[in-house]
Design a protein around this nucleic acid. Structure first.
Length: 211
DNA sequence: ACCCAGGTGGCCC
DNA sequence: GGGCCACATGGG
């Protein structure tokens, strides 16, 4: 229905990291303006961002909301990358996936979804990010709330273990939910997708209750 | 005047 | 390990 999404929409790996922070609980439209602001000021590099005045970063990221937190966090992350990889982002992913994930999770402002998005889209690591949309859809399927870890392990077990599949799957869940709003309003009539597609009772039958 | 957006961290029990 | 809250602007 939606075609190839070609995620993540970013020019560089570093831009993936910054975008992942800025899009937290924030529409991508607003993130785009913030990214443009940073680019215009030539701050979209590890070195330049690490040196930038916090006030400048706040101005650039203002439209994304939580701008005080986010300005501080992207600056901290730039500092970390500067110290650990000398600004060469690719070096962030030289370690085993689990070690890199733990390193990312230790940074303020990077939780599971952000860490996994960075690993997949910037590091080309085979790991599937689970966002709020995915959790809601799976909760609809299951009839109860689902945890990040359980949904992730379920989907990674069922999906083909291919980078492109993971990248497109996550992108398509987001694209689909944005277009339909079905995940938010169960009885939404303006959506073009049959709500029944979320009620398939066979989807997780083989999952033995882990989701 | 609401509700929601490609979450996270801190606190509580 | 789960529930609640602050963080904050912009669009519908």
């Amino acid at each position: 229905m939606y075609g190839k999404q070609n995620w993540w929409p970013a020019r560089t790996k570093f831009e993936v990291v910054i975008g992942a922070i800025l899009t937290q609980q924030t529409s991508w439209r607003n993130v785009e303006s913030a990214i443009r602001n940073l680019q215009r000021k030539r701050l979209m590099t590890v070195n330049r961002l690490a040196d930038a005045p916090i006030r400048t970063l706040q101005t650039c990221t203002y439209a994304t909301g939580f701008y005080r937190q986010k300005a501080q966090r992207i600056r901290n992350i730039a500092h970390h990358l500067l110290e650990t990889t000398d600004g060469n982002i690719s070096l962030l992913f030289r370690k085993p996936l689990e070690e890199t994930r733990a390193e990312l999770l230790s940074l303020n402002g990077i939780g599971k979804e952000t860490a996994d998005s960075i690993l997949l889209y910037a590091g080309n690591q085979l790991i599937l990010p689970v966002d709020a949309y995915t959790l809601r859809v799976m909760a609809r399927v299951e009839g109860r709330k689902c945890s990040y870890d359980s949904v992730q392990s379920y989907l990674e077990r069922e999906l083909p273990r291919e980078l492109e599949v993971y990248k497109e799957f996550h992108a398509l869940v987001v694209e689909h939910c944005k277009k339909t709003c079905l995940n938010v309003k169960p009885d939404c009539t303006s959506c073009r997708v049959d709500p029944c597609m979320y009620r398939a009772d066979h989807c997780l039958a083989s999952d033995q209750g882990t989701v």
